[in-house]
Design a protein around this nucleic acid. Structure first.
Length: 470
RNA sequence: GGCGCCGUACCCAAGUGGUAAGGGGAGGUCUGCAAAACCUUUAUGCGGCGGUUCGAAUCCGCCCGGCGCCUCCA
């Protein structure tokens, strides 16, 4: 599986988050289902121009001139930033993250093949793909080249035989920082060609799944198909998957509109897992409107789910007789679970996921399970076996597949954490003494004070429990 | 101009031929209070009008409203 990765000339925004969380879900679920997935996602560090019609500046070079840094420094900085954000979103890293600049040779080879087969032509040190030679051009996006209106928005490029032709290789102008020798002189690769070269290098000339944002369907993916199939004579990709876009106030989020939300900013107000949960609460093919009201709602819902998971884990560890934990129950074979009363939840979840990765419906099933467990626990004795099964389902579905559950509840292993837990327990005990003497203002003061430190107390019938505010 | 998507309760959002998931919000129960949890609630109704069908939110047609692509964008 190949997914179009980011062009690393700025920090990632919520659009990247929707895209890569969506494909992360697909990879996770395919692997869960037993498929062997080689996940390749490129890093575009050259060739992506600011302007249309193969004119304008390279985005990374432009950034490097503004910041007065080497282009590779720009690429490196934002590549790291990208992975940082994706890690926070609990996105599993691709198996291979090939850089365009690391595959100049492969791109040149592909261009040479296209020229040899008569699908491309060189002019003044640039090489263009001749769209009219490819009878199938437009088959992905349902477009016919005759219907496009060339030259309406940009001045025609006189080097092109036809204005729909797109650049495979561009002659480097004077002062162009990133350039490489080629059979056509010094230059740099076009944007589309990197994805063809790198995907075929690692996945073969025909591979199973190619993903990307809907906005890349045309012209990027269309051009990828043209280049690849004309060069190899074989089908390029079996399944195309396009995720829909993020809107802000029902308008497309875009640089030109100035409404781009950077992830690092979003994370100041919302935990990355809440952002992930929010994204997964709508289908990947639907647009997602990014509003604070919707995010706030998602945060509440997410906490509710996490609470139940925590409570099930706590209850289970009590039964097991040892201290803290929310440790997931030992993995069991599905066959064993299908005998249980919770089997219907497994079935519903998997059916939803099997139906075009319907995460919203799968999450709804998790909420149903949550209510069932809370109900059972509030009514008293729940069989340990049921608790274990519930913990297993949450861990498998909420954790392994959806990736929306925290890895631990913040009370895990380290020495400091255990000291902290003991101190908090001490405070809770002191507060209980105060409450027994009805010293309400003192006990509220303790609770408020802890709350400011991010520790939330809940007084239950059988004692006070604490958790971290998320 | 060409291609395409969407319109489901106060808000977000699944469902795409068999009788409206889930979350938020609101009200209630419990509690010293708070929190958590549970319960209840809101669409004979899915933008409007026709049509096909035993049956339509789901299919078809027209209309209204919103948006996207055709130009760099995830």
């Amino acid at each position: 599986m190949y997914v179009c990765g980011p062009t690393v000339y700025g920090h990632s925004h919520v659009g990247h988050a929707k895209s890569y969380v969506s494909f992360d879900l697909i990879v996770r679920y395919l692997r869960y289902s037993g498929c062997k997935v080689l996940y390749v996602q490129n890093i575009t560090d050259v060739g992506h121009l600011t302007d249309d019609a193969d004119e304008g500046e390279d985005k990374i070079e432009q950034r490097s001139k503004i910041d007065r840094l080497h282009p590779m420094q720009i690429a490196e900085t934002y590549t790291r930033s990208y992975f940082e954000d994706m890690d926070a979103l609990n996105v599993v890293r691709p198996d291979i993250s090939p850089r365009a600049t690391g595959h100049i040779i492969e791109q040149i080879e592909l261009i040479k093949r296209l020229i040899e087969r008569g699908f491309a032509y060189a002019v003044n040190g640039s090489v263009y793909f001749e769209v009219s030679r490819d009878k199938e051009y437009g088959k992905l996006s349902g477009r016919r080249t005759e219907e496009l209106e060339p030259g309406t928005r940009v001045a025609p490029n006189p080097e092109k035989r036809h204005q729909n032709d797109f650049a495979l290789w561009k002659r480097a102008g004077a002062g162009h920082l990133m350039q490489w020798p080629s059979p056509w002189g010094l230059g740099f690769p076009g944007w589309h060609v990197e994805c063809s070269a790198m995907s075929m290098k690692y996945l073969g000339e025909t591979f199973d799944i190619h993903g990307g944002g809907l906005d890349n369907q045309f012209p990027h993916h269309e051009s990828e198909i043209a280049q690849s199939e004309c060069a190899t004579g074989k089908p390029f990709v079996k399944y195309w998957v396009h995720n829909n876009l993020v809107t802000v106030g029902n308008q497309k989020m875009g640089k030109s509109l100035g409404n781009v939300i950077i992830l690092k900013d979003a994370f100041k107000s919302y935990s990355p897992l809440v952002v992930r949960f929010f994204i997964l609460q709508s289908h990947y093919r639907s647009t997602l409107d990014f509003t604070t009201a919707a995010l706030d709602g998602a945060a509440k819902g997410w906490e509710k789910l996490v609470n139940t998971v925590r409570n099930v884990g706590t209850e289970l560890s009590k039964r097991n007789g040892h201290g803290d934990g929310a440790q997931p129950a030992p993995r069991q074979e599905p066959e064993t679970l299908s005998e249980s009363g919770l089997a219907k939840f497994r079935k519903k979840f998997l059916e939803a996921m099997d139906d075009d990765f319907n995460a919203p419906q799968a999450i709804a099933g998790l909420f149903d399970l949550s209510r069932e467990m809370n109900n059972a626990m509030s009514q008293g004795a729940v069989p340990t076996e049921t608790l274990r099964e519930a913990a297993q389902l949450f861990s498998e579905f909420g954790g392994t597949i959806l990736g929306i559950l925290p890895r631990d509840d913040g009370r895990a292993a380290s020495g400091n954490a255990s000291l902290e837990a003991e101190l908090i327990q001490l405070i809770i005990d002191l507060r209980r003494a105060a409450r027994e003497e009805k010293l309400w203002s003192l006990s509220d003061k303790i609770r408020d004070g802890l709350s400011k430190l991010g520790i939330v107390l809940e007084d239950k019938k059988d004692g006070t429990v604490w958790k971290r505010a998320d």
